[in-house]
Nucleic acid binder design. Structure first.
Length: 473
DNA sequence: ATGTAC
């Protein structure tokens, strides 16, 4: 099938280069101008040949302007290093080239100190998902990602795993009654709860952040969409864990995956745009625009990011508190970790900013959670403090196919059989979240044996995710 | 990821 939309390769074929002119051209290309692909190609060809005759054209003037000034624009860009710093790729054989290409660009930034690519990596905006990047006093909004503070939280209860069979109906109802899914969805006034995070003084950082408070309140304790979930499952400890003080055995556990909802997304969008204005990088690196931590914008982003992280944590806490109370159970252990965030850490004797965009912190003895998919195990892990991975591990299995490909190619009956075979009850979710759309978690875990030890496994049994494209509550 | 946007 012929692609009807012009892409970067079409522009290269016309003689465009991978620079800011192409960026502007692609932006114009997104507008619906009522022209056929052929007519658009001709326009782009004409503008490239005689930009001066388009300086009064309402649509193509910005492109003409960039083309006429491209040398000056290029001169004023921040220079990337010629060669990327070396970095380690874990599970390289199962990582798409696009993710490695993006990491290579990140490793040429003048602020980059070190990097690593986790075995679940795939292409994202700017830094790939599964990318870890240590920088010197600089923060990259797209190095954290759109869902700031996206994280995992695990509660292990003092109930045996058999509770899942015995009280299946009750548990399913608890999930439905105490969770809220879907992009844009929030709690009604009478459903809302308060949490100390709403009194966090970071909301007073500036007017922009202050205005996010109302939305944050309405969405507190909600889960959102995409790959986010709230699920009950079997937590299996094959031997006693001394640190958690949990005896060998199988327990009922609650696992949640979600982030900072609309609030974090708004912060990410705002500061990414600001970074792009303040930090002019060559075209291929523009989504890696960074802010100096000592600058006003950099400092503000750092505070806003930390607030979004606290907020995401509060959202998980609300869910776990409500569900624990509905269960009437006691907590044996609670483990949680961000996997989209940036931290100030020591690396090779100096303080660096470690961006983990879809990566689990794995410093020595630090516990983390690496989920599989809705029908494959997740893992409670303990970091080994491997410097080569910048004290990090994967944040999951990683996508094998894109959402669109999964929806097009995977069969619903195959998913049903897989769920049935594994004794999993699924509430909501689209085919893009089917386990077949993900890499094999065991291969991913094998690729990071040097990074984490497995403490216990989590088998999902009752899984709730956002409804498939529906707006229903 | 988010209920958005040249």
């Amino acid at each position: 099938m012929k692609n009807k939309r012009i892409n970067g390769n079409d522009l290269i074929a016309l003689g465009y280069k991978e620079n800011h002119a192409m960026g502007v051209a692609l932006k114009i290309n997104k507008k619906r101008l009522g022209l056929t692909k052929e007519e658009m190609l001709q326009k782009f060809k004409d503008v490239l040949e005689t930009p001066e005759s388009f300086l009064v054209d309402s649509t193509f003037e910005p492109l003409a302007n960039v083309l006429l000034n491209i040398e000056k624009i290029d001169d004023e860009l921040i220079t990337l290093n010629d060669k990327p710093n070396e970095y380690t790729v874990y599970g390289a054989e199962n990582i798409e080239e696009g993710a490695k290409d993006q990491m290579n660009v990140a490793m040429t930034l003048p602020v980059t100190v070190a990097g690593a690519l986790m075995p679940d990596a795939h292409q994202g905006y700017g830094l790939p998902i599964g990318g870890v990047l240590a920088t010197k006093n600089a923060i990259i909004p797209y190095g954290v990602g759109v869902d700031i503070g996206c994280r995992m939280a695990l509660s292990v209860f003092d109930l045996p795993a058999t509770y899942l069979d015995l009280e299946h109906h009750k548990l399913k109802k608890i999930l439905i009654d105490n969770t809220k899914f879907g992009a844009g969805h929030s709690f009604l006034k009478h459903e809302r709860s308060d949490h100390a995070v709403l009194d966090n003084s970071l909301f007073e950082t500036n007017a922009f952040i202050r205005e996010l408070k109302d939305k944050a309140w309405t969405q507190l304790g909600t889960s959102g969409g995409g790959n986010h979930f709230v699920e009950f499952g079997v937590m299996e400890f094959k031997e006693k864990d001394e640190v958690l003080n949990i005896e060998k055995g199988s327990y009922l556990a609650l696992l949640t995956h979600s982030g900072s909802r609309g609030m974090g997304a708004t912060i990410a969008d705002h500061y990414t745009k600001l970074a792009k204005e303040l930090c002019k990088l060559p075209f291929k690196a523009q989504n890696l625009a960074y802010l100096d931590l000592d600058s006003e914008a950099g400092h503000e982003y750092w505070l806003a990011m930390n607030l979004a992280g606290d907020y995401a944590s509060a959202c998980h806490e609300m869910i776990h508190v409500k569900i624990k109370s509905a269960l009437g159970a006691e907590l044996l252990a609670k483990v949680e970790n961000h996997h989209n965030f940036a931290w100030k850490e020591q690396f090779n004797g100096e303080e660096v900013i470690v961006h983990r965009k879809g990566a689990t912190p794995a410093s020595k003895d630090v516990m983390g959670i690496i989920p599989g998919s809705m029908a494959t195990p997740g893992f409670l892990v303990r970091g080994k403090g491997e410097e080569t991975s910048i004290n990090s591990a994967s944040h999951g299995a990683g996508r094998l196919m894109s959402r669109t490909k999964a929806i097009k190619s995977l069969s619903k009956s195959d998913l049903s059989s897989l769920l049935a075979d594994n004794g999993v009850t699924l509430i909501g979710a689209g085919m893009d979240e089917a386990p077949m759309a993900y890499k094999d978690i065991h291969t991913v875990m094998a690729a990071q044996k040097d990074l984490v030890d497995i403490v216990a496994t989590f088998l999902p049994k009752i899984v709730r995710m956002a409804d498939d494209g529906s707006r229903e509550d």
